[in-house]
Design a protein around this nucleic acid. Structure first.
Lengths: 362, 362
DNA sequence: TAAATAAATGAAAGCGCTTACATTCAACCC
DNA sequence: GGGTTGAATGTAAGCGCTTTCATTTATTTA
């Protein structure tokens, strides 16, 4: 992949936001200290490591805190402690059950550990992703969750120079240097494709997202090709259609594929959303699924269960992955030594109603 | 400046970026100032209001910035400027297309204005929500997005004392003092129910989320009762089933409702997720929808289009709402005077395949 | 009981930035 | 030409917290 860009490290606040101060100035640590009759150091300790303070002092301080309605100033805290207890995540979009579910689990795990989630979305655009990464760092994120490996190496360098622990998720590739918590898209796709082929399908279509800067999508296509090769078929015989993730796009791509290659007996899809679209389109064209044509998805999100027939797909443990990614980042932040690499998560074939042997074989 | 690969090792075409701990301290404003031969004030101005600085000076400063790879320290900035350019949102869960989609739009709008989104989830638990609100404030959120009105008045008081602009969304009630960007759940539900009743349905079930601390759910039920009353029916004749949002729970509630009240001819649901579950359950019980029983949803999320038949529901403009909520908050922060109240967003009835006149009427 | 040790607390030095105010200097006016 | 003005820049005072180090007080030990 080719990147060209200028290496700009400053995130400017483009908008100057006039600050409206609260009518009454908020109480500070010093106010609490005075009210409790102790030093600011003691108040700070009460709040951050209560066990280092005597019980009676602690009580005095805490009641002063409540009386004044004190809440520590974030900026000051971040500045002095050099930590924000905030973790950033840059995802393509929340508007997709895949990421939403994993992100929700990620947030929950962070929250249990006293950390807060900063979110930004890239809309699958590399430039925008880079900007978002820099923005989150500029917003003080202590660590970062990124989706997939594909990005300018300069970004990884920047992150490392800033000392920001980063984890790549939704993918796992042991040959890559970045820490990851994810699964092997290629192998999972290969397994599913192998099964499709074993049922007798020879003319297979594949509807994928743009593979240019999306290693997950690319690996899923590669996995399907791997399976063809292993079965002695020409991997270039895979009929490809490329589009953006959406039900409608899946439907369109399905129509196009079937028009151009009427001999297709199975259409594999890069994710469930595309598959649902393809399924509907096939049915709209008067085809019976899976008798006339088989369709498979990827991800196993909720909709794969409500189609008729239910969608054959690959189950990805999104919640588990979100949790594990959070766990990894937390461990990284807490200990100075980087934690042991996380083994790839396993995926499972979900054989449901949209896949069967091709008619000619029956 | 082009990305420098000087300290990146290439192994088999893979960039291995050494994980440099931030031992080398990051450059500060003062470093940039020294390198550029100006004062820190000038550097700061270059970054925050470039037009206040002479062109030649600005160029000097910016090249120093690039040379050093400078990126401003967030904590220091927040402390000095009393602003984080960060907006918080506390939502029940991202794991639901309703909130995910609205939140995505919210994030996009914030981002276009140089603001970043902090997210926390409450899982529909009031205590947890309160904790999350306090957490986001402690994390320096400049403003807050909250879902619905229902919460301890003390929270609103706290927010106002902290001077945190807040907007309530996913609901709109002009009788409430809080600013809101949302729609009238009660009226929307009433309209749908009125239509259901006008078709001849008299024995109606309603599957709702827990209404105890969820004004949206409560208002939707109330709207249905309003419609019954207006039609001269006993509003207490509405058969209620209460459960958590999920397809499976919707199915279960549907089964329970039909067992207990076999005379039901229409089941309205508090949202589309419940409705999809109810639809499947009805079909599993051998009923034909809408001939034997009608089913309606609420929200108009993507799945309402892929069921068979497609779901009759209420369209809620989630993306529009997310955008408008962001806009409102941005305006509030920008100007000292609170912006004009936002008119409630309109919802639309989506009459699709799951609603028809009851059989006895035909 | 005195000395040694541990626990609790305080004093104060920053953390890196923004910004009010002071200063400089060139351009402009009558 | 002296005075005025305004733009450009510098000086330095915080912002509110954490944390090191010194000090005081309580506890233990020989």
């Amino acid at each position: 992949m080719i990147y060209s860009r200028s290496d700009v490290h400053v995130i400017q606040g483009i908008f100057v936001v006039p600050y409206k101060s609260p009518d009454a100035p908020l109480p500070t640590l010093a106010d609490v200290a005075e009210q409790a009759g102790v030093s600011t150091a003691t108040v700070s300790r009460c709040l951050n490591s209560p066990d280092k303070v005597g019980k009676s002092t602690r009580d005095k301080v805490m009641s002063a805190v409540h009386e004044l309605g004190y809440s520590p100033n974030f900026g000051a805290r971040a500045l002095a402690a050099k930590r924000t207890n905030t973790i950033g995540a840059v995802i393509p979009t929340m508007d997709n059950a895949i990421f939403a579910r994993g992100l929700q689990a990620f947030e929950e795990a962070l929250n249990e550990n006293g950390l807060t989630l900063l979110v930004a979305s890239s809309n699958y655009e590399p430039d925008r992703e880079e900007r978002q990464i820099r923005t989150l760092i500029a917003r003080g994120a202590d660590a970062l969750l990124l989706i997939g490996y594909d990005r300018d190496p300069g970004i990884y360098e920047f992150l490392s120079r800033q000392g920001i622990p980063t984890v790549v998720s939704w993918a796992h590739d042991p040959t890559q240097p970045q820490a990851s918590v994810g699964f092997d898209n290629r192998a999972a796709s290969r397994d599913l494709a192998a099964h499709v082929i074993s049922l007798g399908h020879r003319n297979i279509g594949y509807i994928t997202a743009n593979t240019a800067s999306n290693d997950r999508a690319r690996d899923r296509v590669r996995g399907a090709r791997d399976a063809m090769e292993q079965a002695g078929l020409d991997p270039n015989g895979l009929y490809l259609a490329q589009t953006r993730y959406s039900i409608m796009n899946g439907a369109e791509a399905c129509g196009a594929l079937l028009t151009k290659h009427p001999d297709i007996t199975a259409i594999m899809c890069g994710n469930d959303v595309l598959a649902v679209g393809a399924l509907r389109q096939a049915q709209k064209l008067g085809l019976t699924v899976p008798d006339d044509i088989s369709i498979t998805g990827f991800d196993d999100i909720e909709i794969s269960l409500i189609t008729e027939p239910a969608l054959t797909t690959v189950h990805v443990p999104h919640r588990k992955m979100g949790h594990a990614a959070a766990r990894y980042l937390i461990d990284t932040i807490l200990s100075d030594t980087p934690p042991a690499p996380v083994a790839p998560l396993t995926t499972d074939l979900c054989l449901r109603g949209t896949l069967a042997a091709p008619k000619s074989q029956i």
